[in-house]
Amino acid sequence: MERKSFSARALDAHTLKSFAHPTRLRLYELLDAGGPSTATRLAEHLHENTGVTSYHLRELAKHGMIEQVPGLGKGKEKYWRVTPGGYSVGPPPDDEPETASAIEILTDHVVHHRATELTRWREEESTLPPEWKEAGGLSRRSLRLTPEETITLSHQIQEILTTYRTLSDHRESETPLVPPPDTTRVVIHFDVLPAHPEGTPQ
């Protein structure tokens, strides 16, 4: 069955190799979590100088991972944001070890970041307002499916996520620095993986 991509773009090998850099991954996370920001403000978060963050931001922009926010900033000051739509990564190619290595770095980083986010949510859950306690949650299901059924399931969930991603992108385009007061940034973790990775049905 053909795999669909519900992201704005699937990352090519050249972009993957550039993106799989600790500072660039961290900058992307900061922009994704906090919204538009400048090289100076991001440098403060990373305890780096502005020259370092400016360079890595330009590299991210060169590969389409982030973009400048039109109408924000004075003079040479630039506001950057994550390119709407996000990205997707396919399975590592067998014949391109450098690309496969970049995918491993990116995947390991995502797994670590998700663990950090889940730990933060668990620690802060008791202090959240009642409506956000009800809205949040953690769930896990173990299903017995064929590969084709698993891919169909993933497509259906991604279609739903795309609807809400489009809504979110529209809001952030309208008011990039002042989000609506009744909203907050919501993190959705979605993973599909075989319980027996050796590939033998059980």
Rank of each mutant, 00 (worst) to 15 (best):
3 R>A: 12
4 K>F: 01
5 S>V: 00
5 S>C: 05
7 S>I: 01
8 A>F: 05
10 A>R: 08
10 A>T: 06
10 A>C: 09
12 D>P: 00
12 D>T: 03
13 A>M: 01
17 K>M: 13
17 K>A: 06
22 P>A: 05
23 T>Q: 03
23 T>L: 04
23 T>P: 00
24 R>L: 06
25 L>K: 03
26 R>S: 11
26 R>M: 09
27 L>T: 06
27 L>C: 10
31 L>N: 04
33 A>M: 14
34 G>Y: 04
35 G>Q: 08
35 G>V: 11
36 P>W: 04
37 S>N: 12
38 T>C: 06
40 T>G: 12
44 E>Y: 09
46 L>C: 11
49 N>S: 11
51 G>D: 06
52 V>N: 08
53 T>C: 09
55 Y>A: 07
56 H>E: 04
56 H>D: 00
58 R>W: 07
58 R>C: 04
61 A>M: 14
63 H>G: 04
63 H>D: 07
64 G>E: 05
64 G>Q: 05
65 M>E: 01
67 E>H: 06
67 E>C: 10
70 P>F: 01
70 P>W: 01
71 G>I: 06
72 L>N: 01
73 G>K: 03
73 G>P: 02
76 K>V: 03
77 E>G: 03
81 R>N: 06
82 V>F: 08
83 T>N: 09
83 T>S: 14
85 G>I: 00
86 G>W: 00
87 Y>I: 02
87 Y>W: 11
88 S>D: 15
92 P>Q: 03
92 P>Y: 01
96 E>A: 13
96 E>Y: 02
98 E>Q: 12
98 E>D: 15
98 E>C: 01
99 T>K: 01
100 A>R: 02
101 S>R: 14
101 S>T: 14
103 I>V: 11
104 E>L: 08
106 L>D: 03
106 L>Q: 06
107 T>Y: 09
107 T>M: 05
108 D>R: 13
109 H>A: 05
109 H>T: 11
110 V>G: 02
111 V>S: 07
112 H>W: 08
115 A>S: 09
117 E>F: 08
119 T>K: 14
119 T>V: 10
121 W>D: 08
122 R>Q: 14
123 E>L: 15
124 E>W: 11
125 E>I: 14
128 L>A: 12
129 P>W: 04
131 E>D: 15
132 W>L: 15
138 L>R: 14
140 R>N: 09
141 R>C: 10
143 L>W: 12
147 P>F: 07
147 P>T: 07
148 E>M: 07
149 E>T: 00
151 I>W: 05
152 T>P: 00
153 L>I: 03
155 H>K: 02
158 Q>R: 09
158 Q>D: 08
159 E>V: 04
159 E>D: 07
159 E>I: 04
160 I>D: 06
163 T>P: 00
165 R>G: 02
166 T>R: 15
166 T>D: 15
169 D>I: 00
171 R>H: 12
171 R>I: 02
172 E>C: 04
173 S>M: 10
175 T>W: 08
179 P>L: 04
181 P>Q: 01
183 T>R: 14
184 T>G: 15
184 T>Y: 12
185 R>Y: 07
186 V>C: 11
190 F>I: 02
190 F>P: 00
191 D>Y: 07
192 V>E: 02
194 P>H: 13
194 P>V: 05
195 A>S: 12
196 H>G: 06
196 H>S: 09
196 H>V: 13
198 E>F: 11
198 E>S: 13
199 G>F: 08
202 Q>I: 15
202 Q>W: 13
